[in-house]
Computed example of a mutant assay.
Amino acid sequence: MNLRANVQVLSKQYSPISLPTVFIGENNVMNPEYQIDGRVIVNSGIDCQYSKIKASVDFYNMLNKDYYQGGSFILPIPQQKFNFLAKVSYVF
């Protein structure tokens, strides 16, 4: 059995907005210098293997944070809230 934990600390990002009057919440983000705040995302997972069968479960955004991805997009892109991925495989 293998346990994994991952904490991502993401710094603030520029997300230039060039459309006329765009709001996120109450913030007018029509500004090429607009910055998205930093955030902390907590991920975790577990792997198990018995004989030739392997199973794993990964949990993402365990604190269910609302956050956006900035960069060179016209608008900041909303990211997924809490989600998980379960896998079962057979090892040859």
Rank of each mutant, 00 (worst) to 15 (best):
V7Y: 08
K54P: 05
K54C: 10
Y60W: 04
F23S: 08
Y14P: 03
S89D: 01
K52A: 11
F23W: 13
L19T: 14
F82S: 12
E26W: 08
D58Q: 06
S72C: 12
G25R: 07
Q8G: 13
I74C: 09
N61P: 04
V91W: 03
K87E: 01
T21P: 02
Y14C: 06
F59D: 03
F23C: 05
V91N: 04
L85T: 11
P76K: 09
S11F: 04
N83A: 10
S44P: 03
S44W: 05
K12P: 01
S15M: 01
N31E: 01
P76F: 07
K81R: 14
G38H: 08
D37G: 13
Y68P: 01
P78A: 03
Q69G: 01
N83S: 13
S56T: 04
F92G: 03
K65R: 15
F59Y: 11
V29T: 11
S51D: 13
S56A: 14
L85R: 12
F23T: 10
I77H: 04
Y68A: 01
A55S: 15
N64W: 00
V88A: 13
Q69C: 02
Q49R: 13
I53H: 06
K87I: 01
I77S: 05
N2T: 14
D37E: 14
Y90T: 11
A55C: 12
V88F: 08
I77V: 15
Q79I: 01
P78Y: 08
I41R: 05
Y50D: 08
M30V: 10
V91A: 08
Q13A: 14
N6I: 09
N2Q: 14
S11A: 15
S51I: 08
V42H: 04
G38V: 02
F73T: 15
K87A: 04
V7S: 07
I36A: 00
Q69T: 07
V42S: 03
V57Y: 06
R4F: 12
M62K: 03
R4D: 12
D58G: 06
E26I: 09
N27Y: 01
V7A: 13
K87D: 00
E33S: 14
V40W: 00
Q80P: 11
N61K: 00
P20E: 12
R4V: 11
N31R: 12
K52N: 15
F92W: 10
S15E: 09
I24T: 06
G38Y: 00
I36R: 08
